[in-house]
Design a protein around this nucleic acid. Structure first.
Lengths: 235, 235
DNA sequence: CGACATGTTGAACCTCATCAACCGACGTGG
DNA sequence: CCACGTCGGTTGATGAGGTTCAACATGTCG
């Protein structure tokens, strides 16, 4: 049994749609889990019996071809929602991309709640629509962008994320900095590239001063607009 | 005002969720439209005030970059549903890929109906989930498949479609034949390739006897399993 | 310390994009 | 009626962008 009032994603996650009394019922069926980086949460071969909110960390949804080629088809951060409603089978694998904490709900109980509280179902629907939009944006990236644009687009997405949570005025030309939540290998699988190409594009962006690289993981963006332009998303 | 009982997609479309009495109300707000091939139905720049069922034809959803590069991010056939619920802005353009007939509903009236009949909303949700699955399948294709596999995958998808409507036993090694619903240019935009590459891959598939080409548009598949293998989807 | 994972860099190769020519079908206007 | 342009499609030659293979660097953990 969890205490939702201490939950860091209490208001942004799907549970944000619920009132105090409803939340109590939700808390009764909730169960927190810690997932170490690299561990599989949901496999495309086994049925799923739970949903989950991401509390911290990052989760990647991957598809794999028989010969091993892999593509990340979705990336979930807090306060995203994991799990496909109204279906026990999942067409992809969910794996922790970093050490991750999730708040799980049994399938059936959650769907019953969703039936009683239209607001919850509506929120789920909204979230699915957002995921669909993101997937389609990514289709444009995968199908039509160059390697440089792909990497820049990924960094731009992360930079906006981190600028958002900082509640800064978007577009202000301050330095944005953030940690890469993925390894090079995962970035490659997300962008439809190879590890080597990702690495090369990063150093290329560094030498052209679009970004600065602290450690391997720390990225600084001096000029968001410039990054957006390199990403092929400039106005 | 339309007569739903004569509608060819009456039972498969979202309206399939509704009973006779509800259907009458829906019919009162419905309005059929014919769209010639090539005409834009929804632009990403102008707000949308309607939803629609595809009655016949084909609709492509496209995203375009500032420099003109284009990617088809969704393809709709009867009895698919067009339009994004609960949002007046659309992040992409919808265009008739062939001569098309649609059945439109005003935004607001339809959402009111969806509020009253949970079955309708549920069906919409299901449809969105299906679209999400399709988008993610396509991400794997765009990011990781070779040109040959891309074209073969597209043909395989169409072949299964046409085998479905024929209600044949799937997997039976009969010849499946169908018409390509897209021009080479559209296929290229769907697969993240160029026109020339699509053309070359098609002749390559023809000379290796994976497919036969009647006219430019007519395709025959003698062995579905073989096509699936070439598409990188063989077991 | 060695073993292993993660990341960078270099060289060679190959797939696919690009540019260009060409073909047949179609429509239009002189 | 034929010349002409246009559109959709095919085919060829060339080259660039990314992959592949390989070596090396760095960091971490037992």
């Amino acid at each position: 049994m969890q205490r939702c009032d201490h939950c860091p994603v209490r208001h942004q996650a799907v549970c944000g749609a619920m009132e105090e009394s409803q939340l109590k019922r939700l808390a009764q069926i909730a169960h927190r889990r810690r997932i170490p980086a690299g561990q599989t949460i949901i496999s495309d071969t086994t049925p799923v019996d739970f949903f989950a909110n991401i509390i911290s960390g990052a989760v990647k949804l991957t598809k794999t071809m028989p010969d091993g080629r892999q593509q990340i088809v979705g990336l979930l951060f807090p306060p995203d929602f994991l799990g496909r409603a109204y279906s026990s089978s999942n067409p992809y694998t969910a794996e922790a991309a970093a050490d991750t904490e999730i708040c799980t709900f049994p399938n059936t109980a959650f769907e019953r709640l969703a039936g009683e509280y239209p607001g919850l179902q509506h929120r789920l629907f909204q979230h699915t629509l957002d995921e669909l939009d993101a997937a389609r944006d990514w289709m444009l990236l995968l199908g039509r962008k160059t390697a440089t644009e792909k990497v820049a687009s990924f960094l731009y997405m992360l930079a906006r994320r981190s600028a958002m949570v900082g509640c800064k005025h978007f577009g202000a030309s301050e330095v944005v900095s953030f940690e890469l939540p993925l390894t090079r290998a995962d970035m490659a699988d997300y962008l439809g590239l190879t590890i080597e190409t990702v690495s090369r594009q990063l150093t290329k962006l560094k030498t052209s001063h679009v970004i600065r690289l602290g450690s391997n993981r720390l990225v600084e963006v001096p000029d968001l607009q410039r990054l957006a332009r390199v990403a092929g998303q400039g106005d």
